[in-house]
Design a protein around this nucleic acid. Structure first.
Lengths: 338, 338
DNA sequence: ATATTTGTTTGGAACGTTCCAATAGCTATC
DNA sequence: GATAGCTATTGGAACGTTCCAAACAAATAT
């Protein structure tokens, strides 16, 4: 039966006493200083194990005026790509010796604002934000000017001065569209997404420019907006088929939208990949394994994480980071677009 | 142009000076004490706005020996139900005036251990853990005895003394199976899940007992384990049809497994809901909107969150919490099982 | 008028760490 | 053998808050 009491904590002083050194030496060990002898280091570590010492980050952070917390403010945890992204970010952040504080804005600007206000109180190293729709440049800039480094990811805020990490959206849908054109498809629609988010405009632009470059007719009505979830995909496909019964292929705003569209095709008796070719965006884990396997534009969450941490490193070194990193994408051709 | 400097922070002393009160009074306002006059309170709040004061939780937490952080250690953020669960938990936790620290073990015990070791350093109020397979009772008990309250959710650890919140798994699959039996199906298989996790055993038990109660043959070979993702569902269904070509219905370990199974059916030319009835578990948001809409056993993430916080409240009040809360489930009948 | 109660406000100490400047213990140099 | 130049170690102060016991102010009771 262990002790439930929290009356008296084990502190560096206790460690110091047991190890036979001063508290300062213990502190040097804790901060992994170079200038502590191997002998002292071992003594201290042994003492810590022995008496069950737990480092108190509150005290450390208070005194040193820097924490090891990085805030990740994600737009929607229940979106599978967002979840994948968080995992990728977390990995790189922890490799930097930092700890991620993940919060979910749920695409709600006010909630986002509230969360960030709270997170400031923890003295976080930086805010990594995938901004909710409606986030203003002023807000991100103000936050930055208050001394909190901000990095925007996935979505761009026009006028914002904070460094931003983005996938090469334009190139992504452009490659996807070119791929479909090269397979001989002509009546190609763009499904899903909505104007409130910057990536919609970029992905749409890639599609439009590729169609133009291919000299293929692409009327406005081929651009069908929807919610960026499965249900949105279903609705968008239904609408698309009403507008263009001879639809040959679709470029989707995201894999999730593609999933919905494929479901709807089946419901309407159209064979996905056979009668209507499909390319998604994100390349979720499931896309490789479904049937037909889904062609998709892969955004490597690991690369996004790496790029974000590259900026984070610069910031910690007090150097000026690159203001924008475009992470390259890759078109993965699978059965849904043959 | 704001100041980038962090040389000198604005503290309670500055607020006190501006408000014309003592730092102690400012502190009382910050901790929302009853015994500060309305007049002082307003003066202090005005002063805080005026000079842009940011509360320093490190200092507060250090002095008061209690933080407002609750650790949520989730098994797999990329699992859609887990993400939904986190959102439900977060809501209730924030309603208690606490802040969630979400970390992802990725079903890896060692990573889980490392994360918890780190989180201890933040002096968290409690650990809410959906334990990775392989988590031992000793580990959770030790953690608890060290003075860190632990609450297990979704998965039970036999021999563990920590309070646990679970959905009524047995009843869930039992209802699902009874429902299929009442529709006249007889050759009903149980698909997905694996023995490393406690909920598998419970869900399997519900199915087995309902089949027995219905006096319907249910050989061991009707129980087909798999990974608990989409791909696992696909494989499980394929295997099931090899073993029993005249399969009439399936009870799935989770909705995600059901999604995979449904995909595979389509690939093999079997109509889900028409030729093979399907019931899932979790009731993900998508399940309502897909086609055919998926019957499922709903675990209300909000209820799990509420039950967990009920325990958390008891713990904070130093009272003994209930050692186990069984959250009721609900069978949602939709088109996939008519 | 004085004593008592009630309710607010207050300065000093404390939380557990890191920072800093000073010191001690070396070794190498002259 | 004295001095300089390292390197490793050290005690005291500081970070910004809350706790505590004491002081004060206002209202009520005697």
């Amino acid at each position: 039966m262990g002790s439930h009491s929290k009356n008296k904590n084990v502190t560096v002083l206790d460690v110091a006493k047991v190890a036979g050194v001063s508290k300062s030496t213990v502190s040097l060990v804790l901060t992994q200083s170079e200038k502590v002898s191997e002998k002292s280091k071992l003594k201290v570590q042994k003492a810590m194990d022995e008496i069950g010492y737990v480092y108190n980050r509150d005290a450390a952070s208070l005194r040193s005026r820097r924490s090891n917390l990085v805030a990740i403010v994600i737009n929607d945890l229940t979106n599978p790509y967002a979840a994948q992204l968080v995992v990728g970010l977390e990995k790189h952040i922890s490799e930097m010796g930092l700890f991620s504080m993940i919060v979910n804005s749920g695409e709600d600007v006010e909630r986002q604002q509230r969360l960030v206000r709270n997170l400031k109180e923890y003295n976080v190293v930086a805010f990594i934000i995938c901004p909710a729709p409606g986030t203003t440049a002023k807000w991100t800039n103000d936050l930055n000017n208050q001394g909190f480094p901000v990095i925007n990811i996935m979505r761009e805020i026009s006028g914002s001065k904070v460094p931003t990490v983005l996938p090469d959206n334009v190139n992504g849908t452009s490659l996807a569209t070119q791929h479909l054109l090269s397979k001989g498809f002509r009546r190609i629609a763009f499904l899903g997404g909505n104007e409130a988010i910057s990536d919609y405009h970029e992905r749409l632009e890639g599609y439009v420019s590729a169609m133009k470059k291919g000299k293929v007719r692409s009327p406005k009505k081929y651009q069908i907006q929807s919610e960026t979830n499965r249900h949105g995909g279903r609705q968008a496909l239904e609408k698309a088929l009403k507008i263009e019964p001879d639809l040959e292929a679709i470029v989707c705003f995201s894999d999730v939208v593609a999933y919905g569209a494929i479901e709807k095709m089946r419901e309407l008796g159209k064979k996905p990949g056979k009668e209507i070719a499909v390319v998604g965006f994100d390349d979720l884990k499931d896309s490789r394994l479904m049937s037909p396997s889904l062609s998709s534009v892969k955004i490597d969450a690991d690369k996004i994480g790496a790029a974000t941490c590259q900026i984070l490193k610069k910031i910690r070194e007090q150097k000026k980071p690159r203001s924008k990193i475009l992470v390259d994408i890759e078109l993965i051709e699978r059965d849904s677009s043959q």
